[in-house]
């Protein structure tokens, strides 16, 4: 099974969180957002500059930078579809 960093998830794709590698306040922040193992996350859109990327996490739209996104390991589960 191939795991990706969240930042590698193509826009429109959904992934399932397998592990969060961040530490300290960043880890807490990501946990608060609901990024616990098993959570489904969808990459919704890139900013005009390409980074950060906005993700649909438990109904909310949250932008994460590459640095934060790369600490969240996901297993891709679906290819492009609607924004939900």
């Amino acid at each position: 099974m191939t795991l990706f960093g969240l930042h590698e998830l193509p826009v429109g794709c959904t992934g399932e969180v397998v592990a969060v590698r961040a530490t300290g306040p960043t880890r807490r922040r990501l946990l608060d957002l609901g990024l616990v193992p098993g959570t489904r996350v969808k990459a919704v859109r890139k900013s005009a500059a390409g980074d950060p990327v906005a993700f649909r996490i438990r109904g909310a739209l949250v932008a994460l930078r590459r640095e934060e996104g790369s600490t969240v390991l996901v297993r891709p589960i679906s290819m492009p579809g609607g924004d939900r």
Binding site: D32, L33, G34, I57, R58, G59, A60
Partner: peptide, 9 residues
């Protein structure tokens, strides 16, 4: 109400 799951935390 539009985003209940996230707010339940």
């Amino acid at each position: 109400a539009t985003c209940l799951e996230r707010n339940l935390n």
